[in-house]
Design a protein around this nucleic acid. Structure first.
Lengths: 359, 359
DNA sequence: TTGAAAGCGTTACCAG
DNA sequence: CTGGTAACGCTTTCAA
């Protein structure tokens, strides 16, 4: 049982200097041919492996990147992380995972890890910066998926507002006029954007929005369910619901089923994100698909460039989304009013004349 | 803009030795009170942060663990990883992610990373070892979820066979006799175990299994769909299907719907794993639930102990599973009418026959 | 093209 | 309890 060989061992064995061994092993192209091969063979034979800590200390680079998400348990990140991992790997970086649980303290810790040399760069997939962090710092940091306003970090993202508008426009084109929205936890920026897209599409079509038609969720299943309940209890329940993410959309669909309502027969539903298996749901969910793998790849590419000291272009990279037409959307029922009566929660049936009617 | 302070800077500023500073900062309890506070304050004031690479080189520990899965993109791992991450974090370890894509080469790379000091320990969630790896090595490695036979590594897992048997027994108790199985990619060990549980439960009940009743899948959605097709095309199609994982179960349910069959009205379905949102499916999936977070926690605890050089008990840790009774299982059709009556109010266990979806 | 030697920033040993 | 100092294993000037 021998001790792990180091460069010095190879050097002594071959009667060359450690410097030469180091050079030979790092393909610096500075070692002449007879020596080069001998060193390589010796390294192979001795089963030499460089000590990463020593190398890191000397080169002051860790060749690692830190990927920080707000919740590792959320499947939404999977494809993104996968794209990042593959790209990092190709560039020779190993991947450290960070999980903030939406705790600013923990986010600070990850910034500290970056400073401390645990990683050479970081990709942030969290929505905002703790106050303690100066957003203007020129750190090797890329923001993906989310947005951190007024920060100097480059962003890789989608146009949430436009995508949301597209989803809602689809419902409008199908003939829906009573379209509700279940938003994310506004005023979080992404939620605000998606909600803005909802409003924009309706405004452009000249369709009014009763205030109760926008319910605030939290991106989780149960909030979809609860918001759905509130929506369907309205005197004029919507014929279509645009949920700010797929998980809430599932909650909605689930609850509609419980209420004895068919999807999309009675109510159409559109989600956002196109998460794993959303295609496998019954019915398959119509939703906005993000190019997640590509977002991951581009973010990592960008970070790679920054870590190599290349010029970083501040302008955000906006990747295209796609509306996946599946089976939870259909034209509204013509006999809708009859159903509303049958549903009748409150006795009064006033139709708000300034709302919900196309001019 | 100053250079990052190092221990020596603090030492000089205070007129003490670097050794003392190091001791003070690492809570060794070897520094007396006047000095201790002074050093801490100075460190604070100078915003000192230790250089991890130097520390690692010197201590020969990385304080990092490596988590290796076969596919980071699989949501199945999420809770497990989360449990590991939290536990690692509590113990002061950072988390490196490894992704093998079922490539033995890559698995070797991760073993190399371990040897090279990227991490102090590794948790393997892959099913088998590349031939190049000696399974008898006394490495700080824990196997979780999967099984690596004849290896010296401790395991944290569930009893796949017993759990599968429980799932199938449930179907038998409901009155099913024609029970099919969609297995994973046998002869992979986990798939074999689950299949064995299926056979055991049926054998114990004295129920025979036509050879066509066991179809080999690959744990993916589409294979569930395809196997379902083959199963339902048999002259005597099953009245219940036990899929070796949830994803295939979803494929099955989806396909049954397409075939115009109700779940569980016409065919009962049971899955395995209880993945994220499987509760949100419609109908909610009856499945075997693994204590994933706990598996993660225990595996990391075990690894922690091994990394601290504590005695490692070879005996596998077997964690309990739970059969989650949800809404995809019911008595076979013959007895269906009785059930509907008994079920009374909550007769929502059947799928609405709104095949209008398929236009 | 190669070698000698100086660090990289810590920690740990050995004295005092 | 504290200080001096030698590693840890590697890369990278600077000379030859």
């Amino acid at each position: 049982m021998r001790r792990r060989p180091k460069i010095k061992d190879i050097a002594e064995e071959l009667g060359v200097s450690p410097a030469t061994v180091s050079r030979a092993l790092s393909d610096s192209g500075l070692v002449a041919e007879p020596t080069l091969t001998r060193i390589r063979e010796a390294a192979q034979r001795l089963d030499y492996r460089p000590n990463v800590s020593a190398r890191r200390l000397r080169t002051r680079r860790s060749m690692a990147v830190l990927l920080v998400v707000r919740d590792v348990g959320n499947p939404f990140y999977l494809e993104v992380l996968k794209g990042m991992e593959a790209t990092a790997r190709d560039a020779g970086y190993s991947v450290l995972m960070g999980n903030t649980e939406d705790d600013p303290e923990r986010e600070i810790e990850y910034f500290d890890m970056l400073r401390d040399g645990h990683a050479d760069g970081m990709i942030l997939m969290t929505g905002k910066l703790p106050p303690a962090i100066d957003p203007a710092q020129a750190l090797p940091v890329v923001v993906a998926l989310e947005m951190i306003e007024n920060s100097a970090f480059p962003h890789v993202q989608i146009d949430n507002e436009a995508a949301a508008a597209e989803a809602v426009s689809h419902l409008i084109e199908l003939g829906h006029r009573r379209i509700a929205h279940i938003s994310g936890p506004v005023p979080e920026i992404m939620s605000v954007r998606r909600r803005a897209g909802y409003h924009r599409a309706l405004a452009q079509a000249g369709i009014g929005v009763p205030p109760d038609y926008v319910q605030r969720g939290d991106y989780l299943l149960n909030s979809g369910r609860d918001c759905c309940d509130r929506l369907m209890a309205l005197t004029e329940p919507p014929t279509a619901i645009f949920a700010a993410n797929d998980e809430m959309a599932f909650g909605v669909i689930h609850q509609l089923h419980r209420l004895g309502l068919a999807v999309p027969g009675d109510v159409s539903v559109v989600g956002f994100d196109d998460i794993y298996l959303s295609e496998a749901f019954y019915p398959p969910l119509t939703t906005i698909s993000q190019p997640r793998w590509e977002i991951g790849r581009q973010a990592m590419k960008l970070l790679s460039a920054m870590m190599s000291g290349e010029a970083k272009d501040r302008t955000p990279i906006i990747l295209p989304t796609e509306l996946k037409l599946r089976e939870t959307t259909a034209p509204p029922k013509r006999a809708a009013s009859a159903r509303v009566q049958a549903n009748g929660i409150s006795g009064r049936r006033t139709v708000p004349s300034d709302n919900a009617i196309k001019e």
